[in-house]
Simulated assay, not measured.
Amino acid sequence: MRLVVTYDVSDDANRRQVYRTLERYGAWRQYSVFEVDVSKAERVELEDELEDQIDESDGDRVRIYRQCDSCLDHITDLGSDPPEEQSNVI
């Protein structure tokens, strides 16, 4: 399943952990936004990892959106090109 994951993490060390975790699962698209392609089991693992890496008392948040197959045909990028980072998202 394709997911869009956004995050707002205040602590630099925690934010780096979240970034590195998401990088293992998918592609960085813009500040605090990743696209990941995971199985149901991987989604559970990802959510568990992220939950351990954020501090709710600091106001940290992670938001996960599932993209349906028909939605993928309607993605529009405006502005500069997405980052040229290596992507493991198909």
Results as ranks from 00 to 15, higher is better:
23 E>C: 10
87 S>I: 04
63 R>V: 15
36 V>I: 08
42 E>L: 07
46 L>K: 01
86 Q>S: 14
12 D>G: 08
82 P>H: 12
26 G>E: 01
62 V>Y: 06
57 S>N: 10
37 D>Y: 02
2 R>D: 00
80 S>D: 14
1 M>A: 10
1 M>R: 12
80 S>H: 11
63 R>Y: 15
25 Y>A: 03
68 C>T: 01
64 I>C: 02
72 L>G: 00
90 I>K: 00
53 Q>C: 04
68 C>W: 11
37 D>I: 01
89 V>I: 10
28 W>C: 04
88 N>A: 03
83 P>R: 12
36 V>N: 06
85 E>P: 07
79 G>A: 07
52 D>C: 11
47 E>P: 04
46 L>F: 07
29 R>N: 10
10 S>G: 08
57 S>H: 10
80 S>E: 14
77 D>F: 03
41 A>L: 14
68 C>A: 09
56 E>C: 09
16 R>F: 09
1 M>Y: 12
60 D>Y: 06
46 L>E: 05
82 P>W: 11
49 E>P: 00
36 V>A: 04
76 T>W: 04
55 D>V: 10
82 P>C: 10
31 Y>F: 09
4 V>H: 01
45 E>M: 13
88 N>F: 05
27 A>D: 04
35 E>S: 03
75 I>M: 02
1 M>C: 08
58 D>G: 04
61 R>P: 04
51 E>C: 09
63 R>D: 11
85 E>L: 12
83 P>H: 13
12 D>T: 13
50 L>D: 00
11 D>P: 09
88 N>P: 06
33 V>T: 15
25 Y>E: 05
24 R>G: 15
17 Q>Y: 06
11 D>Q: 10
30 Q>I: 02
8 D>F: 05
13 A>C: 12
49 E>L: 15
49 E>Q: 15
40 K>D: 13
14 N>Q: 11
84 E>I: 08
73 D>T: 07
89 V>K: 02
87 S>H: 06
21 T>Q: 06
36 V>W: 02
33 V>C: 10
22 L>M: 10
89 V>N: 08
41 A>V: 13
43 R>A: 10
28 W>A: 04
